[in-house]
Structures are given as structure tokens and as C-alpha cells.
Design a protein around this nucleic acid. Sequence first.
DNA 1: ATGGTCTTTCTTTTT
DNA 2: GAAAGACCAT
Length: 673
Amino acid sequence: MKLNSRQTEAVKYISGPCLVLAGAGSGKTRVITNKIAYLVQHCDYKARNIAALTFTNKAAREMKERVGKTLGKKEAKGLMVSTFHTLGLNIIRREYKALGLKANFSLFDDQDQMALLKELTEAELDGDKDLLKLLQSAISNWKNEMLSAAEAQAYAQSERDQLFAHCYELYQRQMKAYNALDFDDLILLPVLLLRDDQEMRQRWQNKIRYLLVDEYQDTNTSQYLFVKLLVGERSRFTVVGDDDQSVYSWRGAQPENLGLLQKDFPSLRVIKLEQNYRSTSRILRTANILIANNPHLFEKALFSEIPDGEMLKVITAKNEDHEAEKVVGELIAHRFLNNTGYKDYSILYRGNHQSRLFEKSLMQNRIPYKISGGTSFFSRSEIKDIMAYLRLLTNLDDDNAFLRIVNTPRREIGPVTLEKLGTYANMRGKSLFASSFELGLEQHLTGRGLENLQRFTRWIVEMSENIERGDSVAALRELVRDIHYEDWLYESSPSPKAAEMRMKNVSQLYSWVTADLEGDNYDNEVKTLKEIVQRLTLRDMMERGEDDDEADQVQLMTLHASKGLEFPYVYLVGAEEGILPHQTSVDEGNVEEERRLAYVGITRAQKELTFTLCKERRQYGELIKPEPSRFLYELPQDDLHWDVEKRPVTQQERMQKGQSHIANLRAAMFKKN
DNA sequence: ATGGTCTTTCTTTTT
DNA sequence: GAAAGACCAT
């Protein structure tokens, strides 16, 4: 397919900063990949001087693949397509000395972070889960706003902020002692480095001569700074985004960054992609009318040349079981009549918990399905265990990893022993591992405890020496054998079947790691265990084409997870007040983001779109009678076919709906102040 | 240390 | 009302 004139303009404009406002389905990925190819083939850029940033590893992988197809292996060599965090990690790995880090730092994911915070703030927060969550996000927000612990303390207004800022400081100190970094550090540290060190800035600006950013509306403050520092005065960059698809503000994303760009780069060229190649005109018209209820930074008018096609449908169900049955029944009939594949259908919902009934119904009807999201591979306990072993072996000071596996499988090292070791380590200001060798420890810890502990740490030393010495693959094989992990799984799992599953996961992880150690991976690079562990913590598992995207399965996912995807037939379920818009968003007066979420859902559909809702729903144990989502009333009713007479017939009724909407907003505002 | 019962929670989530 | 997590008793 040829690029249209707007897309061509976006690809060929390379002499200055460029913002591409890419509506849903307007071919933004095509623009990015074509632009990279254009830079290399027609503008004398070397691939190794071009970087493209995304938010997810999946997006990065896909983009890499697509560029690879147009460019060929040789021309694409050295091209940097990665997430913000991976680029940050790479910079840190190269400049760790300037940052005052040791080479073998650990990466903490948010669970590690939470575990550490919990332990650190026993005195302050007394294990209060809500407060801990708040603290975690407060620290994350501070880091994203580039504030150090000292600055946070200085700015802290409330007593709680004071306390949190104090915990932030404790946390930073402990992370330093562990020689560990969290995800936010992966952006924060490079930004500080580039900001304060001119030579460093020049070096990286010289390396990255053209920068492209996908999903720009999802950037937060530090990520935007990162972009600004990387492009520098030269300002050779293209960012692609759509403010109507900003659904991550609760995670610190600042869609205002789209507007800021114009202020910071007055010569910014703004190019709008308004032709949609995905959906029927009817679906698109519906989406446009819905989103017109939101304020806009940039006006755009999406259009499609695909004919109207089927009406949009609204199906009303008695209750949520009925809803699932209706959707699945409908799906079966539709597939039969249209001779389509299961993978052409997707069921989208607001919250993960909604998936259960659909899953059940699909299973009963023997329909293959795939749920994205839920518990990820890396939060499975067996994977976390093995990862902890690997992390400890690459950074002996990583106390979190140490604690996770010191008694897994059982080594008869119980809480009492660890408690004593912990206090001693604290006293000496050393890591748990290091302390276990100190002579002074024997005054606190004797007999079996000490013996078991030292047997373990000596074994760790031996293992890490084996790895240092070279044959990591053999060393790893030895590790899994030594700890009898398989036996432990069979012992600790509820059923042999579960144990088998878990062992399969371990083998999967193991084969990824060994493939990378031997350079038998997608980029044919031999990696060190340290690098591999860091990348795995970032969830960047280098899957090689074994994606089961091809499998013929109905796709189930949250609206958030559906962003960027498309399906011929979409069921948007739970279109009710309280669910979409979610009640908490209504209470907070943040219906706009919910509307964008509905917009994202609608614009996933290529051919047909069906909303479903329930008259009754069980929620928190009690029966409620939800109203149809206000968004349904905002849609053009002429394009909508309700299965029951639920639509507001008169203009008056419509007004009433709108009014109550405004009244709700007002009530929420009132509540807030 | 393990297993059972009681209590709590019930939006979205990547890195 | 169900599932996960905390807590207590063994």
C-alpha cells in the first residue's frame, strides 16, 4: 500500500522537530517504520545513529521486525528500537562509573520495591498496605518529577508528605547499599547525567542523531526531559501521538506534553493523519461523535473511505452470566454465518475481573480463547525464585534476592536465624551475604543455624565463581540440579499437574537464558548473565517468532490492553454506568479519560461493533441495577441498534441524561474541594 | 512450618 | 460473593 500525502509529508519532513498527530488506525506505525527506512536510504543516516522509542517491549519488537522487512539486515544494523527504559538501562550500563555505580547493579521490579519499602518502614507505616501503596507511588512520582529525597522533603507540605519523603530517603540509601536500581531510576539517572554533564550529553547526542517516539501522549515529565536532552539543539526528531488515546494519566502520563512541545520547539511542524484505514465509516463516525464531548488540544477530523456497513448493536442481558452467554452465543452464530476465524473476534472489558464469566462460557462451548494480561509470566513464584538465584549470583549484595531464596527450597534457615543475621548485617552496614562470612557473626548465631547458613553462602560463592570462570551454561545446569528445584516444586505445589506446569515455566526461562548466553538468539549476541538478568527484569524476553498470535483464538483483554490492536469484530462488554465510566473515575470527576477509553475500544473495531450491558449485576455481593453507560447515549442513535427499547426517544429525555451527567460532574467537583 | 479460618478487597499496568 | 492475604493454631 502506498502512503497518502499526509503520511508522505510526515515521512519526508526531516529538517526539524516534527509532531505527527495520528488518529486511531491512521497508519502511525507505518509512518515511523517508513521514516526510519527513508532516513537510512535517502538521507545518509546510519541506522546506528537512529533511535526509536516505545513504551512496551512488544511494540519495540514489532517495530524492529517491520523495519527489518523494509530495510534488510545490513542496512538496519545497529538501529536502536527499544523502550524508554531499555535505552536508559543501556546508557547506565555504559556510563555507570560516571553515575557512581558498581558494574553489577541489580534491577528491582515493583514487587521487590514493595518488599523493601515494607521492611524499611516498619516503624513509620507499620505495614499499612494502603499507605505502602501510596508511598510507592509517591516515590515514583517524585522520581518522575525529577525530585531527590532532599528536595521532596523541602517541598513536602503535609505531615504525610514529610513522612513519605523521609521514607524516600531511607529507601534511596538502602537501594544504594544493595547496589540496586528501580524502574524509575532507569529514566531518572540518564536524565540527570545528560543534564549535568555536557560531555556526556554531546556524546549521546552524537550517537543518536535522529529520534522517533511512539505513543508520545503517554510520556511523563522525566521521559519528556529525556527526549529533550537526547535531541538537543539540533532537534531532529519525530514524535507520534494522539491525545484522544491517552488512557494512562493515572500512571503519570502527561498528555499536556503534546502541547508543551510546541512551546519548547517553536519551529515544530505539526502533521495530522486523519484518514483511518481500519474501520467502517459508521464506526468511525460514532467514535468521533463520542470523543467530541472531550476538550481537545488539537482538533482533528478522522474520516474513513470504507462504507458504513452494519449498524452498531447494543445487547441487553438480564445479568452478567446471561451477558457472557449472549456474547458467546452471538459469536458462535456470527462465525458460522460469516465463515470467519475465532481470532477475528475480541471481547473487551474495563476490568480484569470481568473476564471470568466470558472465559467460563467460552470454555463450556469449547471455543479457543486467549486472555492477555492477568498474572504475567514473571510474577509466577517459580520464575521469581529462579530469577532471584540469578540476581544473587550476579550481585551478591542483593539482599532481596538473598531473602527470597535462602530457604527455597528448604535449607532449614528459618526466620530466627535470618532475623539475627539481619540485625548483625545492619550493625555492620553490610549485605546479608557478606555478613554471613564475618567472624563477629558467631557471637550472635551458633550451631545449626550458622552451619546451614554458611553452607548456603559458600555454595553461592562457588556457583558465582563457576560463572565468572566462564562456562555459565554448565554452571546454571549445575545450579538447577544442586537445588533439586524440581523435587521442591512437586513437594510444594497443590497438584502434580501444577508442578509440571511450573517446571515447564522454569525450563522456558532456562532456555531463554542459555540461548542468550550462547549467542543463539535473535541478534546473535553473546550476553553476560548480568545483562540477561537485567533485561529479563525489564520483561524483555527475546521471543523469536514463536508468538502464538497466529493461533485461531478469541481475544479477551482489557480496554487498556487493546490499545494499538485491531479486530474485525469487537464486543465491548459491560457498557454500564459504574463500569465504563468506572465509578471511581466518576467520583473523581475524571470521566474524560473514561470516554477516551471507550473511544479506544470503539476504534479497535474494523467491521462490526457490539456493546453489551446487564440489567442486573452482582457487585461486592449485592445485587445492583446498573444504568446503561452515558457513553451509549452520547453516540449517534441512528447508527445504533438497541435490542430493547432503551434508547431515549425524545429530545427531552436526552437532555435529561446530559443534565444528570453534568450534575454528577458538579457533585464530584464539589466533593473534591 | 503448615494448614486452616478469618478478614479484607473488589480499575486500568508497563517498565 | 469470591478470591487472595493475613493471622492464628497446631
